[in-house]
Design a binder for these strands. Sequence first.
DNA 1: TTTGTTGCAAAACGTTTGCAGCCTC
DNA 2: GAGGCTGCAAACGTTTTGCAACAAA
Lengths: 155, 155
Amino acid sequence: MKEENIRENVKEVFATYLKKHQYRKTPERFAILDYIYSKEGHFHFDAEMLFAAMQDNYRVSLATIYNTLDLLEDINLIVKHKFSGQAAHYEKTFGSIAHSHLVCTQCGKVKEFTDKKIRTAIQAKSFSSFDVTHYSVYLYGVCKACRKKIEEQEK
Amino acid sequence: MKEENIRENVKEVFATYLKKHQYRKTPERFAILDYIYSKEGHFHFDAEMLFAAMQDNYRVSLATIYNTLDLLEDINLIVKHKFSGQAAHYEKTFGSIAHSHLVCTQCGKVKEFTDKKIRTAIQAKSFSSFDVTHYSVYLYGVCKACRKKIEEQEK
DNA sequence: TTTGTTGCAAAACGTTTGCAGCCTC
DNA sequence: GAGGCTGCAAACGTTTTGCAACAAA
């Protein structure tokens, strides 16, 4: 699916969800969704970043951002990650391939990678008493830059 | 390795680490480590629980607990999990088989499971510019109990 | 003796909540 | 017009920090 279509499609998904639950279609909610899906690639963000970045386009309060992120998480239009840092990170899911994360325990940087074997192994798994909607894989370790720093320190 | 040996072994690992970095071997630090490794199976805990539970044996402040948990995380004697809830959860790693987590997005309950295919697929992966030390797999979804509740609500 | 570590309390941080006014339905 | 939603600020729970007293090396 093309980027453009996705951007429209997720709006529909959100609208349908809101209608079903008799929640209201407010401009704030759609502004937030659209901002997130206007970004290409694996756009990682937290609530504060979104708040700051959106000031230019459409002004919304932090409380509303949190509220809306919760709704979007409910319908799996975004995923919430809790890496080791303080703030929760979010990323859009629709139209993106399931991927895993490399998290550097030294500097906290996060990189994505995809691996077919991992994806297949996880998707093959099923449970009688649990309906899986999505998943996250985190590999922790030390990135090249931090490895170098450590080696230099040890000299 | 027997449980008893593990309990002794991790103390050595910790002691070696402390010595290497010229940190001090305080009774508080070893009391915390030993308490964690005195529990059998996949012992999940957060800082507050540990603080409360340890009062009987050896009194330590919350600040020291956080300090020590950080050190133990550094040497991978424990893993830190950040589920969607509030407080970070920890669990011991030494002597336990790598496992994945099922997280219910409704009630927040966490169950463990092991899957050889997933384990193999992840362990087979290697990176030229990243040294993996450990990993976490989370499958999100809805557990049986919550599924029932939702179905009843929809009637 | 030196200096890292502790306990305590206060501060910091991300997130949630209460409330008055607003705007969708 | 009714009631959900917003922005604001205050409150919350977890984690970190500053500091004086303490204790490991």
